[in-house]
Amino acid sequence: MPTNAPTSPLTASERVRQVLKAHGRLATAIESLGDTDSLYQAGLTSHASINVMLGLEGEFNIEFPDSLLKRGTFESVAAITSALETLTPG
């Protein structure tokens, strides 16, 4: 990890959940969803998923490349966390 990377007391998964809580407009509370539960089934719309994407880009200081702009990327907390692992803070 680069020495100047921002540090956070929260795990990546917890930070993803915070972003979902702020931007996901989910019908089901994020606290009641498991990491692999479908966010779409929990009410994540296409438009809300954009706000989630922008929120994640701010939170993690990354930018999602076109290749990750797919429905599957935002399918679950686990899917988002694993997509983030492939991205380097810029």
Binding site: S46, H47, I50, D66, L69, K70, R71
Partner: peptide
């Protein structure tokens, strides 16, 4: 825009 790419992917699937 980029939001559109996500929406298009969903529409196609």
């Amino acid at each position: 825009g980029r939001a559109g790419k996500l929406m298009a992917d969903s529409q196609r699937k």
